[in-house]
Design a protein around this nucleic acid. Structure first.
Lengths: 205, 205
DNA sequence: ATTTTGTTTAACCAGATGGTCAAAATTAGA
DNA sequence: TCTAATTTTGACCATCTGGTTAAACAAAAT
C-alpha cells in the first residue's frame, strides 16, 4: 500500500510538531528540534509541509479544535440547567487535565497572530446563538439569575482555564511548588468550580 | 551632571524593551527592533545591559512587580469583607485595563522559564500567610462561605485576568470582534465580577 | 587647551535557522 | 528483473540574529 508509510511519516511529523510547538510556541520552536523529535531528516518536514508557517498552521488548527468540547450536547440535553453547567465544567476540566499545555499555547498564539485566529474560527462555524437562547430561556424561567450570557460563559471559561494557564505561577505562590498538591487541587476543581458558579447564579426558591 | 544623559538613555532602552518584549515575548523580540524603538544603536543595548537575556530579566522583574496590587492594604483595612473583595477586584481590573498586555506576557513567560520565575518570586517576599489568616477569620465568623482560601483567590484572579489574557479570542467569538464593545464589557467587569463572587460566597443571614 | 573618561556608532563576525537541491534509497509497477 | 515514481537524506545556501570591536564623538577633569 502506498499510504501506509506516507501516513506514518506524516503522522510522526504532526505528533512531533505538536509536541514542540506547544512546548515552545511558534517563535521558540525550531524545525531541527521537530525533526529530531520525529526521528527524521529536517528536509522531510519541508517535503510534507512546505514551510514552518504551514506546518504550524496545520498544528494550530488541529489543536484549536480540541478546545471546543461537545457544545451541541450541552445545549440541547433535556436536563436541568445546573446539571448542564456541571457537566460542561467537568468535561472542560477533564480536557484540560489531559492537555494541560493547551491553554498557554492557545493564549500565546492568539496574541501573536490574531488574523490567523480569525480565519480559523470562521472555518469552524461555531454557533453561539443557540447557546445564548438556551441560557436566556433559563433566565426568563427564573432558574438562574439574569445576566449577560456572554459574561456567564466567560466566567465559566475563566474559572476553568485560568488555573491551567497560570499553573507555574499559581503552583509556586499558593502551593509552595508542590506538584502533586496542585494536581490534586485541579482535580477537585471539577467540583469546586461547579459549586462556585451555581452558588452564584442559582436562584433558590 | 553625569547621570542626566545616562539615565535618559537607559530609560529609553527600558521603555523600548518593555514595549517590544511585551508585544513579542522573549523569543519573538529582536534586539534590533528594541534599538529602533528606542531610537539608538543596537550596540548600545549591549553597552547598558550585557545581553538580551539580562535585558529581558530586567524587564520581566519590572513588569512582574506591577501584577501585585497593594495587597497589604487589602488585608488590613478595617472594612467588611465584601467591601474588601470589591476593592481588590476593582483595583486589579483597573490595573489590567491600563496594561491589557500584561497577562498574556506573564502567562507566556512563566511557562517559558519557570526557574527564573521562581527566583523572581523569592526575591519579592510575598507573604500570603496574613491574607489566608484574614480570610480564615471571615469564614469562622460566618461572613463568607467556608472554602479553601487558595481556591477563592485563584477564582478571583481567574475571573479578573482571563478576559484580558484571552482577549482576541473572546472578543472574536462573543463580540463579533467589536473592539469598543469588548472594552466596555471589560469596564463593566469591575462590577459584574464583584457581584459574581459575592453572590457565590456571601452568606446572607 | 589637553588629557581622560564616558557614550555612541558603523562595520563586522560567528553561529543559528529556515529552506533548497541533487543524489541516494526505497517502493511500486511493468 | 528492470524501470519509474516516491520517499529520505546529507550537504549546502542565504539570511537573520545576538554579540563584539575599534574608532568617532561628547563631556569632564586637569
Amino acid at each position: 500500500m502506498n499510504n501506509i508509510k506516507k501516513d506514518n511519516t506524516e503522522e510522526k511529523i504532526l505528533d512531533a510538531a505538536q509536541t514542540v510547538f506547544i512546548r515552545k510556541g511558534m517563535d521558540g520552536a525550531r524545525m531541527q528540534e521537530i525533526a529530531n523529535e520525529a526521528g527524521i531528516n529536517k528536509a522531510l518536514l519541508h517535503y510534507y509541509f512546505r514551510s514552518k508557517q504551514k506546518l504550524f498552521e496545520a498544528i494550530f488548527k488541529q489543536v484549536f479544535k480540541q478546545i471546543f468540547p461537545d457544545i451541541k450536547a450541552f445545549i440541547h440535553a433535556e436536563i436541568p440547567i445546573e446539571k448542564k453547567l456541571g457537566i460542561f465544567v467537568e468535561k472542560y476540566i477533564d480536557l484540560l487535565m489531559k492537555n494541560p499545555y493547551l491553554p498557554s499555547f492557545i493564549l500565546q498564539e492568539i496574541h501573536r497572530d490574531p488574523e490567523f485566529l480569525a480565519s480559523v474560527i470562521k472555518g469552524q462555524g461555531i454557533d453561539l446563538h443557540e447557546l445564548f437562547t438556551m441560557l436566556g430561556k433559563e433566565m426568563e424561567a427564573g432558574n438562574i439569575r439574569k445576566m449577560d450570557p456572554r459574561e456567564l460563559m466567560i466566567n465559566i471559561l475563566g474559572l476553568s482555564i485560568f488555573p491551567f494557564a497560570a499553573k507555574p505561577l499559581m503552583q509556586l505562590i499558593f502551593f509552595d511548588n508542590d506538584k502533586k498538591a496542585y494536581k490534586e487541587f485541579l482535580k477537585q476543581r471539577k467540583e469546586t468550580v461547579k459549586d462556585f458558579i451555581l452558588n452564584s447564579i442559582l436562584l433558590k426558591a
